[in-house]
Write a protein that binds this DNA or RNA. Structure first.
Lengths: 186, 186
DNA sequence: TATAATGGCTAACGGAAATTAGCCAAGCAA
DNA sequence: TTGCTTGGCTAATTTCCGTTAGCCATTATA
């Protein structure tokens, strides 16, 4: 994307942009920061807060397949349809091999973060007696990797979104059926 | 990458390249074809041929966790260490949003192909009575997505390869343990 | 041996894109 | 009112890069 295209999109001429930004890199940096902020706010908003220790296990006992499906659907819908977030993800995907910083950003934001969250979640569900005792890290990997892969498919083929979302839902339900256990009676 | 950089890498000057190729696009196409060929040869070489119908189920009864681990290890090792294949994958990753053709190429080669293979494999293992009767498409997704995700991690962080390979092995073994069943006696 | 093809080189061209120079109108402050 | 800052504009500059032109040595071929 050229500086002129950016300028057109804002409705001014390219050289005028230089009254607001030092150069193309500076524009990039500004978008980068803004988007990082927005994304962080969103992920915070949909995360169940995982308490420090195991006091509140009732919350985890109440998790249903429908709840998981709902959460995944909203995450994907937001990731796909928010203009900023969606384009930013593509950009990072494209630029991920450019520098160690961008590699780290990609891994951190699109892999590690979501995975750590689910690792914690499953760990607590295991502690609460509603999930099979398997390595939570591997469970999170098995749960998240398909989600991320299907998200990528939606990025490449938006017209298949419905079909992909169906597969996604089936995946979540299969996962739930495989690993969820009814809580033992107290 | 500029034409001059390509020329440098070969040890000649940029204009000399035009004695061998019509232009930059032509160089791209040549790399493309060559790599497609190599990759195809390799994947053929490690694939168990899945016969048309179910005559040969003994092969599928004999599949062990070790065999799966071995197959995955060799696939990943090849994908990472073959100069051509590795760089080509990065290129397609970067260019995947440029055109419908490249989107389709990425999805086809790095998602659908490997997944169809495992879908067929698991289907036959189910038919052979050595795998739980679950939707083979979802099984393939659960099996492959983590592999592909971890491959991406290796691309971004080659220094973590060993650690990632360990996780990968654990994943394969967990999958095997979860879904593999001993064959019923005849 | 004559000559044609091959594949290297330098120099130069042409276009695209980022950036700078410098002008000017509008709004605000002294 | 006067003058300064802001933010737009056009025109020009610079840089990079793909590509072409045209020269020359080597090698294979008739």
């Amino acid at each position: 994307m050229s500086v002129e295209q950016i300028a057109d999109a804002v409705g001014i001429k390219a050289p005028s942009l230089y009254k607001h930004y030092k150069g193309k890199q500076d524009i990039f940096d500004a978008i980068f920061e803004e988007t990082a902020k927005r994304y962080g706010e969103f992920t915070d908003s949909i995360s169940v807060h995982l308490g420090d220790s195991g006091q509140d296990l009732a919350v985890f006992r109440a998790i249903t397949a429908d709840a998981l499906v709902e959460k995944v659907r909203s995450l994907i819908a937001y990731s796909l349809h928010d203009e900023f977030v969606s384009q930013f993800r593509r950009m990072v995907t494209i630029e991920q091999f450019r520098s160690p910083e961008l590699s780290a950003l990609y891994s951190q934001r699109y892999v590690a973060q979501i995975q750590q969250y689910h690792e914690g979640l499953f760990q607590r569900m295991i502690a609460a007696g509603v999930m099979r005792r398997e390595n939570p890290e591997l469970l999170a990997l098995m749960y998240d990797a398909p989600i991320l892969l299907l998200l990528g498919e939606c990025d490449r083929h938006p017209e298949k979104e419905n079909e992909i979302m169906d597969t996604l839902e089936k995946h979540v339900r299969l996962f739930y059926r495989l690993f969820h256990e009814e809580p033992a009676e107290e």
